[in-house]
């Protein structure tokens, strides 16, 4: 595997069923946290030590007065050059050579959380307030190294999430964006050269989620 893996998150196919959000928790044995409805379907309200993936809901009105409603299944992008690793000294965070997955180890409890978070362009790492350990999406490292696709990809009914060899994913991304451009002139892939989790959008990325293209 010359170039590791990638995940495509094609927002144009996402229906916000949140199968990915739940499957992520189920596979990784993360607890459901206590939440309140705060006037949105988006819940839990943010990524946390117990939540590696949140489907973001964003709505508003288009120029013609009709509503839009965008869904953005947020997770770690598994950057090619991970900003979170800037302060790493003793393998607190590792980038797996074969898969390209960026993995937080238990040693992250010794890292400066604030600096790690600031190093991440997408505001992803979170800290366990008790143990001080950091956590985020693992690309389901235990699955992808055992010939299984990540749990979120497995659960996705529409093919909005696709997993595979990075070169093939890049090719598929380009094809899909070209296709979408016919109906949506603003269609684009977000930073495909820099990240392994490539988001495809049909409108201004900021309309999906504030950190969609980075801070």
């Amino acid at each position: 595997m010359a170039d590791g893996y990638s995940i495509i998150m094609d927002t144009s196919k996402c229906t916000a069923c949140r199968g990915c959000q739940i499957a992520c928790k189920q596979w990784n044995q993360l607890p459901g946290t206590e939440t309140k409805n705060t006037g949105t379907h988006e819940n839990p309200p943010d990524l946390s030590f117990s939540t590696y993936k949140v489907v973001r809901f964003s709505e508003g009105k288009n120029g013609d007065g009709k509503p839009f409603w965008y869904f953005f299944s947020e997770q770690c992008r598994h950057c090619m050059s991970p900003g979170c690793m800037a302060a790493v000294e003793k393998e607190e965070i590792v980038q797996d050579d074969n898969t390209g997955a960026v993995l937080f180890t238990p040693k992250t409890k010794t890292l400066d959380f604030k600096a790690t978070l600031e190093g991440c362009p997408y505001n992803v790492p979170r800290q366990d307030p008790k143990t001080k350990e950091l956590a985020k999406c693992t690309m389901c490292f235990d699955r992808i190294t055992n010939e299984k696709v990540p749990a979120c990809v497995k659960s996705c009914p529409t093919g909005a999430l696709v997993f595979g060899d990075r070169d093939k994913m890049l090719e598929a991304t380009k094809k899909r964006v070209d296709e979408l451009k016919k109906s949506y002139p603003k269609a684009a892939a977000i930073n495909p050269d820099d990240v392994r989790v490539i988001y495809i959008v049909t409108d201004d990325p900021k309309k999906y989620f504030k950190y969609a293209e980075g801070k």
């Binding site: 916000a16 928790k25 189920q26 459901g32 409805n37 379907h41 819940n43 839990p44």
Partner: peptide, 26 residues
């Protein structure tokens, strides 16, 4: 209905990960 709860929620309202996503009447 909502995706996260099945019918009256009789089965799903006991599932913390689903309740986390749709916790309250709206």
């Amino acid at each position: 209905r909502v995706t996260e709860h099945w019918q009256t929620g009789c089965m799903t309202r006991w599932q913390p990960r689903l309740v986390e996503a749709e916790p309250q009447m709206f």
